[in-house]
Design a protein around this nucleic acid. Structure first.
Lengths: 244, 244
DNA sequence: GAAATTGATTAGTGTAGGCTAATCACTATG
DNA sequence: CATAGTGATTAGCCTACACTAATCAATTTC
């Protein structure tokens, strides 16, 4: 005989209407996603975020965004100026930075410890970032040796710090022939671009030098980590480099 | 300047009405939880599972369970006999075993790699088991060296295998004075009991010998891993041992 | 200054997953 | 046999999020 008190009474906290689950996590995944999106949009424009911009970002309808903004306001995470867009509150920024920090730690963890290919970790991390508690995320960070960048080169900052100003970071497509530097970060915006770069052996940390700039929008011939590549302008915009 | 194509377009698959998210995962967390609960109940009684038993197990109301059972049936995961309870189909069993496998791998991972205390991992794993893809779970399993037991001693089996019959596994409280063996598994049913055992240094893998059995339900004096403990009957029922 | 375009909000729906209260269908008992 | 318990289901409701269609408000254009 075995297994009688068959385990798993699991304190499944029930946030009414949210199914089982959410065991103690403070916000719903949707709320965290909205906070993250608001943070990013606010960060790039430094202006209040228009409902439509938020909706476009999350690929949802404008009414959905409008609705959820009222929700965020009620949760104290955002303030909504009647017709003119929304801003995160300090609390909202903390939520957003927490999610972003967890996301990047998870990406590190997936590549460095689980050896999942570099170009797949973003999607997996999107799934996990809402289920990993702060405790687990911090334990991951420690286990990884407190890294300060994720595999795409994005910084892992403290929850109460803004993303650092990248300073002299430039997109590769703005560089002239002869320029040299180091590849610091690649945007994870387009998964297929990530996959291509992974296949070509292009990744953060490598030395970069622009061999030539081709006419008629053909892009650049670039040596990256000892290998030569043709980098078209679309790809060049996703690669961020720092002069040395 | 930096961070312009501000990342994270993330292919957020939208299962209508499920918020953002669920990027490709086949079943909702609720469905997985129901399958898991059905599997466990079926496994212990070998009979169809009564709606009420399922509801009690998941700490939800009977109507909710009744409702979801119809849902599971429509998904092809269970068959519901009109008034007489439900059974998992082969597909349902696969779902359940998948969740259980992921849960146990995650528990291993949390203790062995992240060094999260043994008595806390169950709750964290409950949260994560629905967000970790099969791919990530298997990568974890490989990174851990393909363990065959989780930290509580529960077996990690292939998705298409049933939990092995534990054979000669017995609850500690059934043992007489003088019996000796090894602690194979502790039930993770009661978190506070786990916490107590962790504090006392009681964990799977240790040698066990019953020194004496006390009268009037006082339990047993037991040497576990070199330390003496008074084990009351409530605790003894949660500890599973194998004679040597 | 009237009309058209644009952006945000309201109104109403749908789905997933919970709940309570009431009902139905057996069983078990006086 | 009638009556009282059980256990399951139905009916009806609630929350979180999403959607479409329609409206409102502001700006642009003629």
């Amino acid at each position: 005989m075995a297994l009688p008190p068959s385990d798993d009474t699991s304190n499944r906290q029930r946030t009414p209407g949210t199914g089982l689950r959410r065991g103690g996590l403070p916000f719903t995944p949707a709320v965290e996603d909205y906070a993250k999106a608001l943070y990013r949009l606010e960060q790039s424009t430094h202006d209040p975020v228009a409902t439509g911009a938020l909706a476009a970002r999350l690929e949802i309808s404008a009414p959905s965004a409008s609705n959820m903004l009222r929700n965020l306001e009620q949760l104290g995470l955002a303030t909504v100026a009647p017709g003119r867009g929304a801003r995160l509150t300090a609390a909202g920024r903390d939520v957003a930075r927490g999610v972003i920090r967890r996301h990047r730690i998870i990406e590190c963890f997936l590549t460095d410890i689980l050896h999942i290919p570099w170009d797949c970790v973003h999607e997996e991390a999107d799934l996990l970032e809402h289920a990993v508690s702060a405790r687990v995320a911090e334990a991951m960070w420690e286990a990884l040796g407190r890294p300060d960048r994720d595999p795409h080169g994005d910084p892992i900052t403290a929850v109460d710090d803004d993303d650092p100003d990248f300073g002299v970071l430039e997109a590769l497509d703005t560089w002239e022939a002869g320029a040299t530097g180091v590849l610091v970060r690649v945007s994870d915006a387009r998964p297929e671009a990530l996959r291509y770069m992974a296949a070509q052996g292009i990744s953060p940390g490598l030395d970069v030098s622009v061999l030539s700039t081709e006419p008629f929008g053909a892009g650049q011939r670039v040596r990256i980590g000892g290998l030569d590549h043709m980098v078209g302008p679309e790809l060049g915009r996703l690669i961020f480099v720092q002069r040395i």
